[in-house]
Design a binder for these strands. Structure first.
Length: 471
RNA sequence: UCCUCGAUAGCUCAAUGGUAGAGCAACCGGCUGUUAACCGGUAGGUUGUAGGUUCGAGUCCUACUCGAGGAGCCA
C-alpha cells in the first residue's frame, strides 16, 4: 500500500513476463531506463528496459493522466524513470502488455550527448563505451547468456558430482609452456635488487621466488582429481601473448575438468556431453536472447546449434585427418604433412567443409604437443584431442595425462621442463597414480559459439588485450 | 610480431587535386495508438597527428598514432 491508499505493487519485467494475467488491470510500479520515446500531441509511448528482461516495457502516457506530460514528452534515451500506473494485457498488439501511466518520475536524466542511440552502432564504437554498451540489445543479450552459460557449466558438473576446485591465480611455476606469462612482483621497477651475476634477485621478491599469473589450473586440478576422482576448475587465466586476433584476450576464463580412472575416450565423451548440455540449457533459459542472435547476429546459428544437439560429434585421428587434407581439392597456403601442426586453414576445412559439425581430432604427433600428454604405444603420438568447431576454430584442447613416472620424467627432460619446480606433479605419479584425463574449454570461445558474436572483445564485459586496459 | 585495409559532424557514411554533404541522433514545430513511428525546419566540421608536393590537399607523398581483418601463438 502506498501513502495515497492505492494498492500498488513494485515489480520488474522478469516477473511481469512470467505471469502477466496475475497483474491484469492492477496498479504497479516499474523503474527502468528509457530506450525510446515517441511523443505525439496529447500522448506518447515510452519504451523502458529495467534490465531484468530482454524486451522493453511499453509505457503509455496521456496528457490527461500524467501531470508531468511536457517533461515526459522530452525524455531522452538513457534517462532513468519510475513509472506508476495500470498494467494492461494487450493480446492483439505488437507488445504483450503495457502500462497506462498516471505518474512518471525522472530518477536520473541523460543529457543530449548520451552516446547510445536507438540505431545500429558498430561494435568498434561500442567497445569505446564499454561502460554503457550493456544497455544495448546486443550486449544485454550477450552478457545475460554469459551469466547463464556459467550457471549451466556449474550445473552440468555439479549434477555429476564433480568437485569445483579454486586453482591458484598466482603460481610460481613458469614451466607449463603455455605461452608468455605476466610477472607478479612487489620489487621496485626502478633499480630492483640484483644478485652477484647482475640479474634481478627474485629471492628478495614477495614470494622469495619468481611468481606469475596462472596460464592454466590443469596441473593443480590433476592433484585434486587424484583425490576426488572428478573435479573441475572455472576461473580466470592470463596470457601475455602479443596476439591481436578476434579470438584472443590477455585475460579470459577457462573451464578445466579433470577425471581419474578415465582415458581419452571418456574425456571426449565428457566434453561432448558438456557442450550439448550447455547449449540445451541456454536455449531453454534465454529464448528471447537466442532469438535475437538467430535473427540479427548470425543467420546460420540456429541450425548449427540444433544440429549439435541432434548429432554426435565427429571423431578423427590426426593421421586420418592428414590423409583427408592430402586428398583435398582445396589449395592450402601451408603444406600438409604428417608431423606438422594443423594450421587454421586446415582446421577450418575439416570442421566446415568435411564434417560440417564439431570434430575431435585425436592422437597428435608427440613432438608438437605438451610434455604431460600420455604417449601412445606407437611411440610417435600422444593421447591428445582438440575439438574444432565451425566458425570459432579450436574450442577445446585436452588429453589423457601421462601417469607413468619414468615416461613423464623422460619427456620433461626432452622438452626442457624444470623438474625441480614440478616435483609435486611427479609425486602424483609416485603415490597412487592412476590413468586420468582432462580438457580445457575457453569460456569466451564457448560464448562466441553460442551467440554467433565473432569477436572475443564483445563477449567480455571489459576486455583486456594487448595495448588495451581501459575501464 | 608480420601482411592488408581504414580514420571526414555525436553515430553510420558520401565528396575527378578546385565553395566539405546526406541519413540517424540533438534542438524547434506538426501529428489521437505509436512500437527502428511519421512530416517540416534549425544547428552541428582545424577532415586522426606532424611534415612535404602543389597556385590550390579531405583527396597525392613520408612518418607516427589508433582501429579492423588475415597470419603466427593458443583457449
Amino acid at each position: 500500500m502506498n501513502p495515497g491508499g492505492i494498492d500498488l505493487e513494485k515489480t520488474v519485467m522478469r516477473i511481469l513476463v512470467r505471469d502477466p494475467e496475475r497483474y491484469a488491470d492492477r496498479e504497479i510500479e516499474v523503474s527502468g531506463w528509457v530506450r525510446g520515446n515517441r511523443d505525439q500531441k496529447a500522448f506518447g509511448f515510452l519504451a523502458i528496459n529495467d534490465g531484468t528482461h530482454f524486451n522493453p516495457l511499453q509505457v503509455v502516457y496521456d496528457q490527461g493522466n500524467v501531470s508531468s506530460f511536457e517533461e515526459v514528452s522530452r525524455l531522452r534515451v538513457g534517462a532513468a524513470v519510475t513509472v506508476r500506473g495500470k498494467f494492461l494485457v494487450t493480446p492483439d498488439a505488437k507488445q504483450p502488455f503495457e502500462i497506462i501511466a498516471h505518474e512518471i518520475v525522472l530518477e536520473g536524466d541523460a543529457p543530449e550527448d548520451y552516446p547510445i542511440q536507438p540505431k545500429r552502432h558498430t561494435r568498434e564504437f561500442l567497445r569505446e563505451v564499454a561502460h554503457l554498451r550493456p544497455r544495448t540489445n546486443l550486449f544485454s543479450a550477450v552478457f545475460r547468456i554469459r551469466s547463464l552459460a556459467a550457471y549451466a557449466v556449474h550445473e552440468f558438473f555439479q549434477e555429476r558430482g564433480f568437485v569445483y576446485i579454486h586453482s591458484p591465480i598466482i603460481t610460481a611455476s613458469d614451466a607449463e609452456g603455455a605461452g608468455e606469462l605476466f610477472r607478479v612482483t612487489t620489487l621496485p621497477a626502478q633499480k630492483p635488487p640484483v644478485n652477484e651475476q647482475g640479474e634481478v634477485d627474485f629471492s628478495q621478491d614477495f614470494f622469495g621466488r619468481k611468481a606469475n599469473l596462472t596460464v592454466s589450473g590443469q596441473l593443480e586440478a590433476e592433484a585434486f582429481a587424484l583425490a576426488f576422482r572428478d573435479v573441475y576448475t572455472f576461473g580466470p587465466t592470463f596470457r601475455a601473448e602479443n596476439s591481436n586476433t578476434p579470438r584472443h584476450a590477455a585475460e579470459f576464463w577457462m573451464i578445466e575438468p579433470e577425471i581419474a580412472f578415465a582415458d581419452l575416450q571418456d574425456d571426449m565423451d565428457l566434453a561432448e556431453q558438456m557442450i550439448k548440455s550447455v547449449i540445451g540449457k541456454i536455449m531453454a533459459l534465454a529464448p528471447e536472447e537466442m532469438e535475437f542472435f538467430f535473427k540479427f547476429v548470425d543467420k546460420g546459428l540456429e541450425v548449427r546449434l540444433r544440429t549439435i544437439l541432434e548429432q554426435d560429434f565427429a571423431r578423427v585421428t590426426y593421421t586420418n585427418a592428414i590423409e583427408i587434407l592430402e586428398k583435398a581439392k582445396a589449395q592450402f597456403e601451408y603444406p600438409v604433412a604428417w608431423g606438422n601442426d594443423l594450421q587454421t586453414e586446415h582446421e577450418r576445412y575439416l570442421t566446415e567443409q568435411v564434417f560440417h559439425k564439431p570434430v575431435f581430432v585425436t592422437d597428435y604427433p608427440r613432438d608438437i604437443k605438451a610434455f604431460y600428454m600420455r604417449q601412445n604405444d606407437d611411440g610417435k603420438t600422444v593421447a591428445a584431442m582438440d575439438l574444432l568447431v565451425p566458425g570459432v576454430g579450436e574450442l577445446i584442447g585436452g588429453s589423457q595425462r601421462e601417469e607413468r613416472a619414468e615416461l613423464l620424467e623422460q619427456r620433461m627432460k626432452e622438452t626442457n621442463i624444470n623438474r625441480d619446480e614440478l616435483w609435486w606433479y611427479l609425486e602424483l605419479r609416485k603415490y597412487g597414480g592412476v590413468k586420468h584425463a582432462g580438457f580445457g574449454v575457453g569460456f569466451e570461445r564457448l560464448i562466441m559459439y553460442l551467440t554467433g558474436v565473432g569477436n572475443i572483445r564483445d563477449v567480455i564485459p571489459f576486455p583486456r588485450t594487448v595495448n588495451s586496459c581501459e575501464f
